[in-house]
Design a protein around this nucleic acid. Structure first.
Length: 265
DNA sequence: GTTCTCGGCCG
DNA sequence: CGGCCGAGAAC
């Protein structure tokens, strides 16, 4: 007879993910247990860092408890990797060098609908939760992004990005500003490929033919040249970031040395 | 080769 | 003490 290992569903994970707890049955650590997770595709995960690596930046596992598989809302603050944005650093007016993206927190570690789907007697209810995450959207909702600008800590408005000539917007507002917002939003909200409006009908009459799951821009192609250029930019940006982080840590070290001398004197 | 399992390090 | 991961054992 085989000891059936139970792979249980996990409350904080979407359907398909399974959690398993294996009790050690021999050795010095007998009685201790190990927890594993399985992705819908069957990949096994044996630690939080491993899970985190796999899920990438789309998910903040900060308050996810690996052992229990639940989100622990309270258990977050004593995190040693405190976000630099709180307290001291900001008060002292230093640059915020935190590179983590802000990620919306929900009960699940994954994107999920806020509207709860409940069954009702005599009602047929959509049971496909994946589909349910697609909410109806207002046509040309991107227009509402108009006027939003990014700014640095001194509230100096940052120079906007220059978009490649190949990108052209569609719809009632054809400013570059809206185009940038639309594309940035699309990249942020969906993991599906961003192609732009592939139907030529949409260019002529977007109010009718618009594919609302794609940003308000004409279909575009990305050339190898584009990719190489982008790689170069990323390299340069990383270089700058590296320099900034080094400078920051040097400054920090110097400051703490000064503090200690100050206290001794 | 892959998967399972426990040791042991390190915070 | 517990999370994490290496590496030997098992298959």
């Amino acid at each position: 007879m085989i000891m059936e290992r139970k792979r249980t569903d996990c409350p904080a994970l979407p359907p398909g993910w399974k959690k398993e707890e294996v009790i050690r049955k021999s050795g010095l650590s007998a009685g201790k247990s190990d927890v594993y997770y399985y992705s819908p595709t069957g990949k096994k995960f044996r630690s939080k860092p491993q899970l985190s690596r796999y899920l990438g930046n789309t998910v903040d596992l900060g308050c996810f408890d690996f052992r229990t598989g639940k989100m622990m809302p309270g258990k977050m603050q004593k995190n040693k990797q405190r976000l630099r944005s709180d307290n001291l650093n900001m008060i002292k007016g230093k640059l915020d060098l935190n590179t983590a993206l802000p990620i919306r927190q929900t009960a699940s570690i994954f994107k999920q609908p806020v509207t709860k789907v409940v069954s009702h007697p005599n009602n047929k209810v959509k049971t496909d939760l994946q589909k349910a995450t697609e909410q109806p959207r207002q046509l040309f909702w991107e227009k509402r992004l108009k006027g939003l600008r990014s700014s640095d800590v001194t509230e100096e408005v940052l120079r906007t990005m220059e978009l490649p000539k190949g990108l052209q917007s569609i719809g009632p507002d054809s400013s570059d500003e809206t185009l940038l917002s639309a594309i940035a939003s699309a990249l942020h909200m969906s993991s599906a490929p961003i192609t732009g409006q592939t139907s030529t009908a949409a260019e002529k009459n977007p109010a009718i033919w618009l594919n609302s799951s794609q940003p308000l821009c004409k279909a575009f192609t990305v050339t190898d040249e584009d990719i190489r250029e982008q790689e170069l930019k990323v390299h340069q940006a990383r270089r700058c970031l590296e320099d900034a982080l080094m400078a920051d840590s040097v400054a920090r070290a110097a400051e703490s040395t000064r503090d200690m001398k100050g206290r001794a004197a």
